[in-house]
Protein backbone atom coordinates (compact mmCIF):
# COMPACT_ATOMS: atom_id res chain seq x y z
CA UNK A 1 0.00 0.00 0.00
CA UNK A 2 1.64 3.24 -1.09
CA UNK A 3 1.44 6.53 0.80
CA UNK A 4 -1.52 7.89 -1.17
CA UNK A 5 -3.50 4.65 -0.89
CA UNK A 6 -2.75 4.50 2.80
CA UNK A 7 -3.91 8.07 3.33
CA UNK A 8 -7.14 7.33 1.48
CA UNK A 9 -7.73 4.09 3.38
CA UNK A 10 -7.11 5.75 6.74
CA UNK A 11 -9.50 8.54 5.79
CA UNK A 12 -12.21 6.02 4.89
CA UNK A 13 -11.62 4.10 8.10
CA UNK A 14 -11.95 7.33 10.07
CA UNK A 15 -15.33 7.79 8.39
CA UNK A 16 -16.33 4.37 9.77
CA UNK A 17 -16.06 2.18 6.66
CA UNK A 18 -15.59 -1.43 7.74
CA UNK A 19 -13.82 -2.50 4.55
CA UNK A 20 -11.19 0.20 5.09
CA UNK A 21 -10.40 -1.28 8.50
CA UNK A 22 -10.16 -4.69 6.89
CA UNK A 23 -7.76 -3.28 4.33
CA UNK A 24 -5.58 -1.97 7.16
CA UNK A 25 -5.73 -5.37 8.85
CA UNK A 26 -4.67 -7.08 5.62
CA UNK A 27 -1.85 -4.60 5.12
CA UNK A 28 -0.42 -4.73 8.64
CA UNK A 29 -1.45 -8.05 10.21
CA UNK A 30 1.76 -9.79 9.16
CA UNK A 31 4.05 -7.12 10.54
CA UNK A 32 2.01 -6.64 13.70
CA UNK A 33 1.79 -10.35 14.40
CA UNK A 34 5.53 -10.70 13.75
CA UNK A 35 6.25 -7.87 16.15
CA UNK A 36 3.93 -9.32 18.80
CA UNK A 37 5.24 -12.86 18.62
CA UNK A 38 8.88 -11.75 18.60
CA UNK A 39 8.16 -9.48 21.57
CA UNK A 40 6.21 -11.93 23.70
CA UNK A 41 7.52 -15.23 22.35
CA UNK A 42 4.05 -16.77 22.56
CA UNK A 43 1.54 -17.37 19.79
CA UNK A 44 -1.38 -17.08 22.21
CA UNK A 45 -0.29 -13.61 23.32
CA UNK A 46 0.46 -12.51 19.76
CA UNK A 47 -2.99 -13.59 18.57
CA UNK A 48 -4.67 -11.79 21.48
CA UNK A 49 -2.64 -8.67 20.92
CA UNK A 50 -3.43 -8.62 17.21
CA UNK A 51 -7.17 -8.70 17.94
CA UNK A 52 -6.82 -6.08 20.67
CA UNK A 53 -4.76 -3.92 18.36
CA UNK A 54 -7.56 -3.88 15.80
CA UNK A 55 -10.15 -2.92 18.43
CA UNK A 56 -7.87 -0.20 19.70
CA UNK A 57 -7.46 1.03 16.15
CA UNK A 58 -11.25 1.43 15.83
CA UNK A 59 -11.29 3.47 19.04
CA UNK A 60 -8.23 5.63 18.42
CA UNK A 61 -7.98 6.14 14.67
CA UNK A 62 -10.09 9.29 14.89
CA UNK A 63 -7.21 10.89 16.85
CA UNK A 64 -4.71 10.21 14.09
CA UNK A 65 -3.95 13.01 11.67
CA UNK A 66 -1.86 12.33 8.63
CA UNK A 67 0.86 14.84 9.36
CA UNK A 68 3.09 12.09 10.72
CA UNK A 69 3.67 8.62 9.30
CA UNK A 70 1.07 5.98 10.00
CA UNK A 71 3.41 3.05 10.79
CA UNK A 72 5.29 4.71 13.67
CA UNK A 73 1.97 5.79 15.17
CA UNK A 74 0.56 2.29 14.81
CA UNK A 75 3.62 0.55 16.21
CA UNK A 76 3.92 2.94 19.10
CA UNK A 77 0.45 1.82 20.20
CA UNK A 78 1.53 -1.78 19.62
CA UNK A 79 4.65 -1.21 21.73
CA UNK A 80 2.58 0.16 24.60
CA UNK A 81 0.33 -2.89 24.43
CA UNK A 82 3.32 -5.21 24.56
CA UNK A 83 4.76 -3.26 27.49
CA UNK A 84 1.46 -3.61 29.39
CA UNK A 85 1.20 -7.29 28.57
CA UNK A 86 4.73 -8.00 29.77
CA UNK A 87 4.24 -5.91 32.90
CA UNK A 88 1.01 -7.75 33.71
CA UNK A 89 2.65 -11.07 33.04
CA UNK A 90 5.47 -10.10 35.43
CA UNK A 91 3.22 -8.99 38.27
CA UNK A 92 0.37 -11.48 37.78
CA UNK A 93 1.66 -14.35 35.70
CA UNK A 94 -1.66 -16.21 35.57
CA UNK A 95 -4.12 -13.35 35.26
CA UNK A 96 -4.24 -11.56 31.95
CA UNK A 97 -6.79 -8.98 30.93
CA UNK A 98 -7.62 -8.49 27.29
CA UNK A 99 -7.68 -4.73 27.69
CA UNK A 100 -4.56 -2.66 27.46
CA UNK A 101 -4.16 0.03 30.10
CA UNK A 102 -3.17 2.98 28.01
CA UNK A 103 -2.08 3.93 24.57
CA UNK A 104 -1.27 7.50 25.23
CA UNK A 105 2.20 7.23 23.83
CA UNK A 106 3.99 7.73 27.11
CA UNK A 107 7.64 6.90 27.53
CA UNK A 108 8.37 3.21 27.58
CA UNK A 109 11.80 3.72 29.08
CA UNK A 110 10.35 4.34 32.51
CA UNK A 111 8.50 1.05 32.65
CA UNK A 112 10.80 -1.38 30.91
CA UNK A 113 13.85 -2.72 32.70
CA UNK A 114 16.94 -1.38 30.96
CA UNK A 115 19.28 -3.99 32.36
CA UNK A 116 19.10 -6.89 34.76
CA UNK A 117 17.42 -10.30 34.68
CA UNK A 118 14.99 -11.12 31.88
CA UNK A 119 11.48 -11.22 33.28
CA UNK A 120 10.08 -13.49 30.63
CA UNK A 121 13.23 -15.06 29.30
CA UNK A 122 12.42 -18.45 30.74
CA UNK A 123 8.91 -18.50 29.29
CA UNK A 124 10.11 -17.27 25.96
CA UNK A 125 12.87 -19.79 25.88
CA UNK A 126 10.42 -22.56 26.70
CA UNK A 127 7.94 -21.66 24.00
CA UNK A 128 10.16 -20.26 21.36
CA UNK A 129 11.25 -22.22 18.43
CA UNK A 130 14.43 -21.37 16.60
CA UNK A 131 17.70 -19.78 17.52
CA UNK A 132 16.63 -16.24 16.75
CA UNK A 133 13.78 -16.34 19.26
CA UNK A 134 16.10 -17.73 21.92
CA UNK A 135 18.66 -15.06 21.11
CA UNK A 136 16.04 -12.32 21.25
CA UNK A 137 14.89 -13.61 24.63
CA UNK A 138 18.37 -13.06 25.97
CA UNK A 139 18.43 -9.37 25.08
CA UNK A 140 17.24 -6.86 27.64
CA UNK A 141 13.65 -5.77 27.05
CA UNK A 142 14.43 -2.23 25.93
CA UNK A 143 17.06 -3.27 23.38
CA UNK A 144 14.81 -6.02 22.00
CA UNK A 145 11.93 -3.57 21.59
CA UNK A 146 14.14 -1.02 19.85
CA UNK A 147 15.35 -3.58 17.33
CA UNK A 148 11.87 -4.99 16.72
CA UNK A 149 10.28 -1.56 16.34
CA UNK A 150 12.95 -0.54 13.86
CA UNK A 151 12.44 -3.70 11.83
CA UNK A 152 8.66 -4.25 11.97
CA UNK A 153 7.47 -0.70 12.53
CA UNK A 154 10.07 0.91 10.28
CA UNK A 155 10.41 3.55 12.97
CA UNK A 156 13.16 6.11 12.67
CA UNK A 157 15.83 6.15 15.38
CA UNK A 158 14.51 9.57 16.31
CA UNK A 159 11.03 8.08 16.93
CA UNK A 160 12.55 5.18 18.85
CA UNK A 161 14.56 7.53 21.05
CA UNK A 162 11.43 9.57 21.73
CA UNK A 163 9.40 6.46 22.54
CA UNK A 164 11.96 5.26 25.07
CA UNK A 165 12.71 8.77 26.34
CA UNK A 166 16.43 8.54 25.78
CA UNK A 167 18.99 10.52 23.72
CA UNK A 168 19.28 9.66 20.03
CA UNK A 169 22.91 8.53 20.38
CA UNK A 170 22.04 6.25 23.29
CA UNK A 171 19.22 4.60 21.32
CA UNK A 172 21.48 3.75 18.39
CA UNK A 173 24.26 2.57 20.72
CA UNK A 174 21.84 0.11 22.34
CA UNK A 175 20.60 -1.12 18.97
CA UNK A 176 24.17 -1.59 17.76
CA UNK A 177 25.14 -3.58 20.81
CA UNK A 178 21.92 -5.64 20.51
CA UNK A 179 22.60 -6.56 16.91
CA UNK A 180 26.14 -7.64 17.72
CA UNK A 181 24.84 -9.70 20.63
CA UNK A 182 22.18 -11.38 18.47
CA UNK A 183 24.75 -12.37 15.89
CA UNK A 184 27.00 -13.82 18.56
CA UNK A 185 24.12 -15.68 20.23
CA UNK A 186 22.88 -17.10 16.94
CA UNK A 187 26.33 -18.36 16.06
CA UNK A 188 27.05 -19.69 19.55
CA UNK A 189 23.73 -20.48 21.21
Amino acid sequence: MDEQQLRHTVHRAQAGEADAYEALLNAYSKRLYGYFIRSTGRHHDAEDLLSEMMLKLVRTLKNYDHRGRFEPWLFRIAANMVRDRIRRRTTRPRAMSLSAADDGGGSMGSSLPAEGPQVDAAMMAAEASGDLQSALAKLDEQTRQMILLRHFGEMSFKDIAAAFDCPLGTALAKVHRGIKQLRRLMVEP
Binding site: S29, L55, L57, L148
Partner: peptide
Protein backbone atom coordinates in the same frame (compact mmCIF):
# COMPACT_ATOMS: atom_id res chain seq x y z
CA UNK B 1 14.66 -14.50 10.10
CA UNK B 2 12.44 -12.10 12.03
CA UNK B 3 9.19 -12.16 10.03
CA UNK B 4 6.57 -14.58 11.29
CA UNK B 5 3.36 -14.92 9.33
CA UNK B 6 0.19 -15.09 11.43
CA UNK B 7 -1.87 -18.28 11.16
CA UNK B 8 -5.03 -17.79 9.10
CA UNK B 9 -7.28 -18.39 12.12
CA UNK B 10 -5.52 -15.59 14.04
CA UNK B 11 -6.19 -13.10 11.26
CA UNK B 12 -9.77 -14.36 10.90
CA UNK B 13 -10.38 -13.92 14.61
CA UNK B 14 -9.00 -10.39 14.51
CA UNK B 15 -11.14 -9.66 11.45
CA UNK B 16 -14.35 -10.89 13.13
CA UNK B 17 -13.73 -8.77 16.20
CA UNK B 18 -12.85 -5.80 14.02
CA UNK B 19 -16.04 -6.04 11.94
Amino acid sequence: HLPAAPPVESTDRARRRLV
